[in-house]
Structures are given as structure tokens and as C-alpha cells.
Design a protein around this nucleic acid. Structure first.
Length: 273
DNA sequence: ATACTCCCCTGTGGGC
DNA sequence: TGCCCACAGGGGAGTA
């Protein structure tokens, strides 16, 4: 579910509530979502620790605790981290509750794909998935040259390459479709075929659409909510995602959807070349 | 290494 | 109306 703008919004809406809070207890309702470290169990690691700060890397949310521990959380498709200032009844999809000295943090996840790991802060970079993460698209270091280098030698289409978190971190199905439309590039283009000028357009489009997504506090196409349970607004600004069969906002043609690398891409076959 | 497909789950919406 | 199937903001395992 959450892509970079949604995870960033969760981080921002959670930071004020959690920073300096102490974990007083942990209730694992569906333990499969939580993983400890070696012989140390998840609840044992957390209990008593104080939260020092929150960090985002790609679609991962890192919650840094004192005494050298961190939580690595990934929402996958339907995960939510919700903060409540007072004790709150659990819902049917609540997989775990972090009791704090002030309030509670609930992890909800309909599809049970999301995971939260407790790891030594020094070992965060070794966590599978995090280890091979590509560059952060909103950092200055992410340039057209970097993008072209990352796509060099790839045999897949542009859409699949952009979804590969090792190429760059944080794009998912919504924002790849939107970025490709803004750059007027077809998702079917061979990833390695971008000319210099096209890479410039795509780099700019990726940065713009992610910034706009963050500004709108994410896309609530269906499940996504921030830490306060609020929806985002970016679904109102989507130009292609979910609009197959509707009119292209640029040329008035019909948007098409096509399965590429196991995911659905929506695009304008006339505008995007 | 790279690039596919399948799979993990539950809920929903469209077609019949 | 009800049933069945396909599909859903993701990514890991397994396979060529």
C-alpha cells in the first residue's frame, strides 16, 4: 500500500506522538507480523525502551529506540500504524498494540503482509530488502545520470525497472504510473533505452510527483491512512492510475491498462512514447 | 546476476 | 440476489 509519500506522511504524523515516548507493554495479537532478533523475542526487546526518532528509507519506516535498538516496519499493501492518545479497543485487523507511557500505537493490517522487525540499530543495514535499496529519489544525489546508470543493462521494461526497489527506493504502482505519464514515457519502453533528455524528464517527473504526493499527504485510493487515521488527498490529482478507459487529461484519448511484469500499468498510448 | 512466476492474505467489485 | 473469479499502494522465494 503505502509508497514513499505515504510512508513519509506516516513518519511525519507519528513523530510528534512517539518521540520520547516509552514502550510500557506490547500485545501481539497476530504474532506472525513481528520478529525479534536471534533468541530475543520482540516484546522483550521493546518493553521499557524509549523512542528516540523516526526515519524513512524508501518504503521502510525505522523507529529508533534507545539502548541501540530499532524497529524496521514495512506496511506492504494494507498496513497501518495508528496512534491513539488514550486506550483504544482493538479492531478485527489489529495485529499488535504498543502501549506507551502516553497513548497507544496500533498496527493494523487486513492482508497480513506487513512486518515489523526489532533489530540492533547497527544491523539495520543488513536487513533483507533494506540492504540493497537504491537511491532516495528526493535526495539531490538522485540525478538523470544516476537514473541512467541504474537502468543500464536492464532487459525489462521501464515500468518494471522503476518498481524494483534496488533501482531506486520508494516508488510503487501508483507513483510509477503517474511519473511516467508526466514524463510522457511509455511504461513498455525498454528500461535501458532512455536518451539523456528522457532521463532528465523522468527524473524531474519522479521528484515532482513524489513531492506533490507528500504535500497532499498521500494517496488514499482505498486503504491508506496516516498515523491519525486521516486519508490523503492525492487521489484527486491522479492522472492515470485507476483511470483506465477514461480520457487522457493531455490529449483526450483513451487511457489503457496493461499487465507488465505482473503489475497493472495504466497509460496513454498516444502521449506516452 | 537477472528476470520471470507464484505465493503470502483478506476484501471487494464486476460479470454472469 | 448470489457466486465465482480476478484483482488490489508489495516483495520474498523459487525457478530457469
Amino acid at each position: 500500500m503505502p509508497e514513499l509519500p505515504e510512508v513519509e506522511t506516516i513518519r511525519r504524523t507519528l513523530a510528534g506522538h512517539l518521540t520520547d515516548a516509552r514502550v510500557t507493554g506490547v500485545r501481539l495479537i497476530w504474532p506472525g507480523a513481528f520478529q525479534g532478533w536471534g533468541e530475543l523475542d520482540f516484546a522483550g526487546i521493546l518493553t521499557g525502551k524509549r523512542i528516540q526518532g523516526l526515519e524513512r528509507r524508501g518504503k521502510y519506516l525505522l523507529i529508533h529506540l534507545d539502548e541501540g535498538w530499532s524497529l524496521v516496519a514495512h506496511m506492504r499493501m494494507t498496513g497501518r500504524l495508528l496512534y491513539f492518545s488514550a486506550s483504544q479497543e482493538i479492531g478485527p485487523h489489529t495485529r499488535g498494540v504498543f502501549e506507551l507511557n502516553q497513548g497507544e500505537l496500533h498496527f493494523q493490517d487486513v492482508r497480513k503482509f506487513g512486518r515489523i522487525l526489532a533489530v540492533p540499530s547497527a544491523a539495520v543495514n543488513e536487513v533483507r530488502g533494506l540492504a540493497a535499496l537504491g537511491p532516495e529519489p528526493l535526495e539531490q544525489e538522485f540525478t538523470p545520470d544516476v537514473l541512467r546508470n541504474r537502468l543500464r543493462g536492464k532487459k525489462t521494461c521501464l515500468k518494471s525497472a522503476l518498481l524494483d526497489q534496488r533501482v531506486l527506493a520508494g516508488l510503487g504502482n501508483i507513483y510509477t504510473d503517474e511519473a511516467l505519464f508526466r514524463a510522457r514515457l511509455s511504461p513498455e519502453r525498454p528500461a535501458a533505452s532512455l536518451e539523456r533528455e528522457e532521463a532528465e524528464k523522468l527524473t524531474a517527473a519522479i521528484k515532482e510527483v513524489l513531492k506533490a504526493g507528500i504535500e497532499a499527504q498521500g494517496t488514499s485510493f482505498r486503504d491508506y491512512r496516516d498515523a491519525n487515521g486521516r486519508k490523503g488527498e492525492f487521489q484527486r490529482s491522479l492522472q492515470v492510475y485507476g483511470r483506465q478507459g477514461q480520457l487522457c487529461t493531455a490529449c483526450g484519448g483513451i487511457l489503457v491498462s496493461k499487465r507488465l511484469g505482473g503489475r497493472t500499468a495504466v497509460f496513454c498510448p498516444a502521449c506516452q512514447v
